[in-house]
Design a protein around this nucleic acid. Structure first.
Length: 113
DNA sequence: AGGTTGACGAAGT
DNA sequence: CACTTCGCCAACC
């Protein structure tokens, strides 16, 4: 039995389209959990593989990758982003260019709550 | 039950 | 910019 909060977070992240990114805080807000950005990170760490949650599209509020530079996870994330033509420079993405602007109506439809 | 943790964030220096 | 400090709070010991 997994927490309902985790599931809501997973589903919200799944709504982020390819080529766009979101921040931990933004996901928390959209998931109905304002102020719980840290929970988003934890939830992503426990996401079941079969859901195919695009965890790599989630960044810190300043656009930086959340993992230490050079770590395996960070390198993997950068690679996945670049495959979607999201530019990563100095461990950071320019949010102004690629940050997700969710269509709330559409989003709420796809969400299980 | 109570203490610790952490894929965060905002504000300050 | 980089770095610190502090607030946050569900999940997990």
């Amino acid at each position: 039995m997994v927490s309902a909060n985790y599931q809501r977070i997973w589903h919200t992240v799944m709504a982020v389209p390819p080529g766009r990114v979101a921040t931990y805080g933004q996901i928390a807000d959209l998931a109905g959990l304002p102020g719980r950005a840290r929970l988003v990170g934890k939830a992503l760490g426990h996401a079941p593989e079969h859901l195919k949650v695009p965890w790599f599209r989630v960044l810190r509020s300043d656009g930086k990758i959340a993992f230490p530079p050079g770590s395996d996870t960070a390198c993997q994330q950068i690679g996945l982003l670049q495959e979607e033509d999201v530019a990563v420079l100095n461990h950071r993405v320019r949010l102004k260019q690629v940050q997700w602007q969710p269509d709330l109506a559409t989003l709420l439809q796809g969400l299980p709550y």
